[in-house]
Design a protein around this nucleic acid. Structure first.
Ligand SMILES: [Mn+2]
Ligand SMILES: [Mn+2]
Ligand SMILES: [Zn+2]
Ligand SMILES: [Zn+2]
Lengths: 159, 159
DNA sequence: TTTGGTATTGAAATTGATTTTCATTTAGTG
DNA sequence: CACTAAATGAAAATCAATTTCAATACCAAA
């Protein structure tokens, strides 16, 4: 790692070492805050901006990619596995991955047809995951006996 | 329109009227700022938050959808046409649409297979559009005669 | 037409994440 | 050891998105 960075003109530091290591331990869809928390637990003195900058660096050198989905926070995803899309559950905010094999092929075709030079795809499905749906169903059943009230509340305009 | 909103418990106002009308005139991938500018040109007194709120309202009642792509600003897309994806050109920041017909079908399948209840898709291709590529090529040709310099500048870490 | 209760508005303030600044420290090189 | 560029941490700046609040306007019911 140290060598790899050196070739690109970067130095190694204890903080960088720690951020990199922690990132690869956590791995999946980490946010800056999450990584910062974990790093802090090991070395209280590391600053937020250091974590942020090194996360950017990890992307810079091609070891991770930013993924923004659903809410307004950027997450960082290792680039080990092959291209994949993301399910985003609107209830529990969880992320699941799914394979993009055929879909990626089709997308490439579309891009070529439109003379567009593809750099990357982003495929995302928003909805409700199974476990959240199950919970809803249970709740619905429980309420069958109680008097069903019609909501008169105007739905909030804000997210 | 007035009636349509009334049934949902909303009132009509000159500002709202203006925002709605301006939005449907512009139509494609408008940002709050863009719409605000346009509205301002017609009625200087309309506030930013009014434009923002009414854009949200347009989504609320199902006439538009938010689309966030590339940079960090939310754009608003009419929901007239059928599901489509977006090409985002990293050079000129332009958006092009492409049809999602077969791809949407496949995505639905994937979702079903994973017991995921789909609410919406988001399909995006980032890259370089034809016209930007053409420009690049021209530039490259022009520079064939001049001495090619190797860049020693470390690429910026910031977006 | 007047009136009363809401919804809406505009300006300003707040939020929340990201990014930059800057003074200081440190890594890597010789 | 000494030098230079890179890296760090704290704080400040950005920037879009959202909320607050007092004033105003809509519109349904009298
Ligand atoms: Mn992922
Ligand atoms: Mn579109
Ligand atoms: Zn869920
Ligand atoms: Zn372009």
């Amino acid at each position: 790692m140290r060598e790899f960075l050196k070739t690109k003109g970067y130095k190694m530091t204890p903080q960088r070492e720690l951020v990199f290591r922690s990132f690869f331990e956590l791995g999946e869809h980490v946010s800056v805050d999450e990584l910062f928390d974990r790093v802090k637990r090991i070395d209280e003195s590391v600053g937020y901006s250091t974590v942020w900058r090194n996360l950017k660096l990890i992307c810079e050198v091609g070891l991770a990619r930013e993924v923004t989905v659903g809410d307004g926070v950027t997450r960082y995803d290792r680039v080990t596995r092959k291209p994949h899309g993301h399910f985003y559950c609107l209830k529990c905010k969880s992320l699941q991955e799914f394979d993009l094999n055929e879909i990626a092929g089709r997308l490439s075709k579309v891009a070529t047809a439109e003379k567009f030079e593809t750099e990357s795809f982003k495929v995302e499905i928003e909805g409700v995951c199974k476990s959240c749906r199950d919970k809803e169903n249970k709740k619905a059943k429980r309420n069958l006996s109680t008097s069903p009230k019609i909501s008169r509340t105007k739905p909030s305009r804000q997210k």
